[in-house]
């Protein structure tokens, strides 16, 4: 039994290739992928969709009131709202260094939220 093809637009790079995924008894077939990363992206998209998440946290004593942060790896798409609620609770004091961990092991995913820049 092969499923109906699922159309997917790849976001692994700016090219935006249009892929197609077929599921057949535990097997996943990817068509039209322009590269290996596209293959992986399409597989992930039907089994465990993830996205990079970027937001800001409050920071005190700095030239700006906010510090930009992002996830160290793509984060489970279904839990992004939960993650944003966690990010909103954080309050830091300057100075902050780039890649400084702001939330460790966010929601138990093993993924950290880190600073996107130095801020003094």
């Amino acid at each position: 039994m092969t499923s109906e093809p699922i159309p997917i637009i790849c976001v692994a790079c700016p090219k935006g290739c249009r892929l197609e995924v077929l599921r057949s008894e535990g097997d996943i077939l990817v068509n039209h992928a322009g590269c290996k990363r596209g293959q992986e992206y399409a597989r992930g998209e039907v089994t465990d969709p993830r996205r990079m998440v970027a937001s800001t946290v409050k920071v005190l004593n700095a030239i700006h009131p906010l510090l930009p942060v992002y996830t160290s790896a793509p984060f489970p798409k279904g839990r992004i709202r939960e993650l944003l609620a966690e990010i909103r609770k954080v309050e830091l004091k300057a100075p902050v260094k780039i890649n400084q961990v702001v939330i460790e092991n966010a929601l138990g995913t093993g993924i950290d939220v880190v600073a996107s820049r130095d801020l003094e």
Partner: peptide, 19 residues
Amino acid sequence: CIHNGFGVEVFKEDLPGPS
């Protein structure tokens, strides 16, 4: 531009704008 997607061509990395 705090979102990621910068540097894929130059650094082969997917960085946010400030990084």
